[in-house]
């Protein structure tokens, strides 16, 4: 029911003006109502502008400058980009990173999926197994790095000691060989982790009717896996793929703590190069240019993934 205040002239008010005033008041209330959500969004928006948009644009500008934080930036055009392209060490770090991404991302997805499939089987003590599976992912990187240093140590390390028991010669140079060391870090990071949890959640969302129908049709387990489970998990796979890709391009902490990027740049990943240029060498311009190169590479890969996702990702509710 319409309020009498809004529907008709009121005593003491000029009949010609009263509706206009009320309209304006109503419009004011509507405006405030429309404004309110934006006010709630304002803190987030200010945060994004201040801590994300501004630094991103600022880094783009500084990628064309010499800048050490303490003195005014000096514009040098594309020189940072040209110098980086000409630098062997940058290429080496980029190749290390691409190798790491190319192996660890699919490896992590497969391990995560296999772990999720195992942990989706109804057995006794399932909550315990699920907890144990996620525990390694909760260990802080610094702590894990210290433990892994011990594990890979050529002299006292667990792996070499184990290999010796199996009859292999002791003293394999895991961290002092520039080729081997890359694979150590790749191997270290291939684990289920959060991706496994997401796959597990996805598995529990696959409708039971589909499995029942497959069973009635006489599908074997392996056929059910490839024809029902995996297609139904593709949205989760896409999500895991994207997040692990972005994470892998940012590989930094473990090699920094364990080998400092050595030996001879064997474990220098792109993130370390950015860090060293920015904070150790005071070359913010170089670091910004490195970051933008990484951003462009990552964006290209993510773009390709999205472009192709329509052909391999199945959404139950339609694409």
């Amino acid at each position: 029911m319409t309020s009498p205040l809004l529907s008709g002239p009121q005593p003491g008010l000029d009949p010609a003006e009263a509706p206009g005033l009320l309209d304006r008041l109503a419009r004011g209330r509507n405006f405030r109502r429309r404004l309110l959500p934006f006010l709630f969004l304002l803190p987030w928006f200010v945060g994004v502008l201040t801590f994300q948009a501004y630094p991103i644009l600022d880094s783009f500008y500084h990628s064309f400058t010499i800048y050490d934080v303490f003195q005014p930036a000096k514009w040098i055009g594309f020189r940072n980009y040209v110098n980086l392209a000409d630098n062997d060490y940058t290429r080496k770090a980029l190749m290390n990173t691409l190798l790491y991404v190319a192996v660890s991302v699919p490896g992590g997805l497969v391990v995560g999926l296999l772990q999720a499939l195992l942990l989706n089987v109804k057995v006794r003590g399932l909550p315990l197994f699920r907890t144990l599976a996620i525990v390694p992912g909760t260990v802080p990187v610094a702590g894990a790095a210290a433990v892994f240093l011990f594990i890979w140590s050529p002299n006292l390390g667990l792996i070499n000691s184990f290999l010796k028991i199996l009859g292999f010669p002791r003293g394999q140079a895991w961290l002092t060989d520039p080729v081997m060391v890359k694979w150590v870090f790749i191997f270290m990071t291939i684990q289920g982790g959060i991706g496994m949890l997401i796959f597990l959640a996805g598995l529990q969302n696959v409708p039971q009717e589909l499995y029942d129908a497959a069973k009635i049709d006489g599908a074997k387990s392996i056929q059910t896996l490839f024809k029902v489970t995996l297609p139904m998990l593709t949205p989760y796979t896409l999500f895991n793929l994207l997040t692990s890709l972005i994470g892998a391009f940012q590989m930094f902490a473990s090699p920094m703590l364990m080998t400092g990027g050595g030996p001879a740049g064997g474990s220098t990943f792109y993130g370390q190069l950015i860090y060293e240029n920015a904070f150790r060498y005071f070359k913010m311009g170089h670091a910004a240019a490195l970051s933008w190169i990484l951003f462009v590479i990552s964006m290209l890969i993510v773009f390709l993934l999205f472009r192709t996702s329509a052909s391999w990702v199945y959404y139950e509710g339609g694409n």
């Binding site: 740049g265 150790r280 060498y281």
Partner: peptide, 29 residues
Amino acid sequence: VQSQCENLWTRAFEEVTVGVKSAEDALSD
């Protein structure tokens, strides 16, 4: 550029010890 100097000297030492470069090449780089 002392910190970079320290880092790159370490790198040159490692490059020669692991045999990926000669001392001349590592130092020249």
